[in-house]
Nucleic acid binder design. Structure first.
Length: 220
DNA sequence: ATGACGATTTACT
DNA sequence: GTAAATCGTCATA
């Protein structure tokens, strides 16, 4: 089931705006939930590529064994996580994939939200072109699989480490648009353990992954 | 300088 | 279900 179109959302007459700093300067769980249904936009060569966020994970900082900032680690790579909410944090992993986060909290709080899946909305042909490099010739990816994972959406939207550290309130090429004013109701959100953090002990099981319930574009 | 290891994806048995 | 791909990052020396 697709998310509501922005024109159908009460009070929105088109022309969605970027959230203010305060939207991001909250705890990571609140931001992770509030991001569901909002639109991630990448402007590439003047063309908009975008999708609605349908899956997120919260990473809670120094105490969180699964977070890159566990134990208060501060390195060149994770520096954006220490910046004020609304900063992009993009990292490279497994020798071939990028993952995109938006930081939460205030400056000095090393917390972030990993964006794990999108429902493609604009620039779908371009996304398919970006993604098909990894697909056998002749095969056609289903639209719902263009952005159904953290590395997939980075490939589809051409997001890489060059964006790590950019302020998404100011940047012209990568930002969030607020499609809905209020967070989705808890009923619409499935809460589960985070994916791929089995090394994190107790923290691996905490309910910090948020998915629009039953959405076809979620990962796995 | 070196070695171990991924906040993943895809293909294959 | 399991395994390979592939290299930047980080801790250790």
């Amino acid at each position: 089931m697709a998310l509501k179109r922005e024109a159908d959302v009460a009070g929105m007459g088109g022309g969605d705006g970027r959230p203010a700093r305060g939207f991001f300067e909250r705890d990571a769980v609140t931001v992770a939930r509030a991001l569901l249904g909002q639109r991630l936009v990448r402007v590439l060569d003047g063309v908009r590529l975008s999708g609605l966020i349908v899956e997120t994970e919260a990473y809670l900082g120094a105490a969180d064994r699964a977070a890159h900032t566990f134990g208060g680690r501060r390195t060149a790579r994770n520096e954006p996580m220490w910046q004020s909410g609304g900063t992009a944090y993009v990292y490279f992993t497994y020798g071939m994939h990028h993952c995109f986060n938006v930081t939460a909290g205030k400056s000095g709080e090393p917390v972030a939200v990993l964006v794990r899946a999108l429902e493609p909305r604009e620039g779908i042909a371009r996304m398919r072109a970006h993604r098909s490099s990894r697909v056998k010739p002749g095969q056609r990816l289903r639209e719902r699989d263009l952005c159904s994972g953290p590395a997939k959406l980075c490939e589809a939207l051409a997001i890489d480490r060059r964006f790590s550290g950019v302020d998404m309130l100011e940047d012209g090429a990568l930002f969030i648009e607020q499609v809905r004013r209020r967070a989705m109701s808890a009923k619409m959100i499935a809460t589960t353990a985070r994916i791929g953090v089995g090394y994190a002990g107790d923290w691996a099981e905490k309910p910090l992954r948020f998915v629009v319930k039953g959405h076809a574009c979620a990962s796995r």
